[in-house]
Write a protein that binds this DNA or RNA. Structure first.
Lengths: 102, 102
DNA sequence: CTTTCACATCATCGCCCGCTGATATCAGCG
DNA sequence: CGCTGATATCAGCGGGCGATGATGTGAAAG
């Protein structure tokens, strides 16, 4: 059975701002203030997106004083990479695997 | 420079039905009728999604008589896999890369 | 040619979701 | 404690996008 890509994770990453946040967090661990500076988004907006990313299991929070640091969970990205690699491998053999017209 | 994941492709794959279509096409090349059977979606709805997938460069069309076969472009999936792998690798080193509180 | 079937396009509706503003919470500091 | 700044939560608005129906096009079958 071909394990498909997790729809929830992809759906969450489908938002441009969230994908941007993930890309930023892949470089360094940041807190909300940094993310506000980097993205130019409002704090409220960002906090909402961080909640979505947290509930999707993509990021973890690490309180540090009155700041909240966010860091990526690399396993999630690794899983995505493997799932897409598997899909790609399957797709390469699917070209000749043409189902007959009904 | 860290090459981020292509936001357009991810955004297109963010829709559950489209991701399902891509997963199906990774197994075998199908025409619209097959996809209608497999997904249970209306033909019009499916045709709209196929247009989006086509314009995003994720699938190719191959006319065969009065049927239209769709097949995946594996390079796109391979690219995604590599980009996520790169992100994951970067994220693993980003844990200690913590920017100072402002 | 006429019919039928596969598929695409167009217009429209409805709803989800991202954005915003107001407000709550909580930690540090004087 | 009172103040300030960082962050979370909540309610409401509005735009974009996915779903649907009607219709157009083009190719095979009869």
């Amino acid at each position: 059975m071909l394990t498909s890509v997790d729809p929830d994770v992809i759906r969450v990453l489908g938002d441009p701002l969230r994908l941007r946040i993930v890309t930023l967090l892949a470089r360094e661990t940041l807190c909300t203030t940094h993310l506000v500076e980097e993205t130019g988004a409002k704090q409220t907006n960002l906090s909402n997106h961080m909640k979505v990313l947290r509930e999707a299991g993509i990021v973890e929070t690490e309180p540090c004083g009155r700041y909240t640091y966010y860091k990526l969970k690399p396993e999630v990205l690794t899983g995505l990479s493997e799932q897409f690699a598997e899909l790609a491998a399957s797709a390469r053999t699917a070209a000749e695997n043409k189902r007959a017209c009904p």
